[in-house]
Amino acid sequence: MSFLSELKQNIRQSGKVTYEFIAVNVGLFLLFNILFIFERLLFRTGILADFYHDYLFLPGSLDVLITRPWTIITYMFLHAGLFHILFNMLFLFWFGLLLEEYLGRKKIISLYFLGGITGGLLYIISYNIFPYLRDQLEFAFLVGASASVMAILVACATLLPDYTFFLLLLGPVKLKYIALVLVIFDFLSIAGSNPGGMIAHLGGALFGFVFIKQLRKGNDWSQPFIKVVGGLGSVFKRRPPLKVKYSNKDRKNSSPRPVSQQDEIDAILDKISKSGYESLTAEEKNKLFRASGKD
C-alpha cells in the first residue's frame, strides 16, 4: 500500500472531519505549488499563478465577485505561503479535534464553512464602505482558512472556556484567554499591513461565538446548512425507485419516533462550560458521545 493510500485510509478510519479539512488544505497547497514550480522552470511563465489568484481568491470588489461567486468557498481552502498554512493547520488540528469530540462532524463542517463565509462577507463589506479600504479595492483579494479556523477556535473557547492548554514557556493557559488574546491581536492588527485579513478573522470569530450561544438556546444553525448541502448533493445522485408497503400489523407494532434530546444535551454543555468536562457523570459523558456521533 502506498503512503498516500495508507494516509487516506487512516483519515477515513478516524472518522474525524477535522483531519479531512487539513488533508484538503495541505493537498491543494502542495498541488498548486508543485505546478507553479514546474511551470516556472519549464515555461518561464506565471499563467497558472495568475489564474490561481484571479479566479480562486475572494475579491473585495463586488463587480468582480459577481463574475466569480464560487470564490466565497474556494478562498478558504487556499493559502499564500508556508507559514500561512502551517499556523492555520496547527490551530485547526488543536481546536478542531477538541471541538469535534463534543459537537461532532456536522457542526464542525458548518462552523468551517459558515465561519469562512461570514469572514469573507465582512471583508467584502469593509472594502466597500470604509474610505481607507475602498482606495485599495482594486487590489483587494482574500485567501486562507483563517476565518474558518477562528470560528472553530472561538466556538471551542465559548463552549469550553476553562479547558487548559500547556503552552511552551507559559505553562497552563485556559482556552478563553488564548482566544481573547488572538481576537485582541487581530483587532489591533487592522491598523497594520493586512487590515482586510484581520477583519475577516474577526468575522469568523464572531460567528463562532454566536453559533455556540445560539446552540445553548436550542437553535442549531448547523441543521439548515447541512440540509442545504445534503440537498445539493442529492441532486447529483441517482437513486433507484423505492417501494414500501405497510400492513396493518406493521402499523400497530411500529414504535413512535424518539423524542429530541437537544435540551438534555444543552444542559450537559452548560455543565461543561461552568464546571469542566471532568464534572460530568459517566452517563452524561456517554450521552454526549452518542450525540456527537449523530451530529
Rank of each mutant, 00 (worst) to 15 (best):
Lys294Ser: 06
Leu90Met: 14
Leu28Phe: 11
Phe57Thr: 03
Asn25Tyr: 00
Leu48Asn: 13
Ile129Lys: 04
Ser222Gln: 14
Val244Leu: 11
Asn25Trp: 00
Ala179Arg: 05
Leu42Ser: 14
Asn194Phe: 13
Asn248Cys: 12
Ile199Ser: 03
Pro131Thr: 11
Phe32Asp: 12
Ile152His: 15
Ile73Asn: 03
Glu39Gly: 05
Met1Val: 09
Leu28Ser: 10
Gln223Asn: 13
Gln136Pro: 05
Leu137Arg: 11
Lys174Gly: 02
Leu242Cys: 07
Asp250Arg: 07
Ser292Asn: 03
Thr71Val: 09
Leu103Ser: 04
Arg105Lys: 13
Met1Ser: 12
Leu82Glu: 05
Tyr75Arg: 02
Gly27Tyr: 00
Glu264Trp: 02
Leu182Glu: 12
Phe165Ser: 06
Lys107Asp: 00
Val229Gly: 05
Ile178Leu: 15
Ala200Val: 01
Leu168Gly: 05
Pro258Asn: 08
His201Cys: 09
Ala147Thr: 08
Arg216Gln: 15
Gly119Phe: 01
Phe87Met: 14
Asp135Ser: 14
Gln13Ser: 15
Ile125Arg: 03
Trp221Thr: 09
Pro224Glu: 10
Arg239Cys: 03
Asp50Thr: 09
Arg238Leu: 07
Lys106Gln: 06
Gly218Pro: 05
Phe165Pro: 04
Ile212Asp: 06
Val259Lys: 13
Tyr19Asp: 08
Gly119Lys: 02
Gly276Thr: 03
Thr118Asn: 12
Leu58Ile: 02
Asn88Leu: 02
Glu39Cys: 06
Ala179Glu: 10
Gly27Ser: 09
Leu142Ser: 09
Leu98His: 14
Gly81Trp: 00
His84Ser: 14
Val229Ser: 08
Gly293Asn: 08
Lys245Thr: 13
Gly276Asp: 02
Gly120Ser: 05
Asp54Arg: 15
Asn88Phe: 05
Ser247Lys: 09
Ile22Glu: 01
Pro69Ile: 12
Glu278Lys: 14
Ala179Met: 08
Arg40Phe: 06
Arg238Val: 08
Met89Trp: 01
Arg257Ile: 10
Arg290Glu: 12
Arg68Asp: 10
Leu62Cys: 06
Val235Ala: 11
Val64Gly: 14
Leu142Ile: 06
Phe38Tyr: 11
Leu35Ser: 11
Tyr112Met: 06
Asn25Pro: 00
Ile268Ala: 08
Ile272Gln: 04
Ile66Ala: 14
Leu206Val: 10
Arg216Val: 10
Glu284Gln: 13
Leu86Lys: 10
Gly15Trp: 04
Gly233Cys: 01
Leu242Gly: 03
Val24Leu: 01
Glu100Val: 01
Leu153Tyr: 01
Val210Lys: 09
Phe93Gln: 07
Gln262Glu: 14
Arg238Lys: 09
Tyr132Met: 10
Lys174Ser: 08
Asn253Leu: 06
Phe166Thr: 13
Leu242Asn: 02
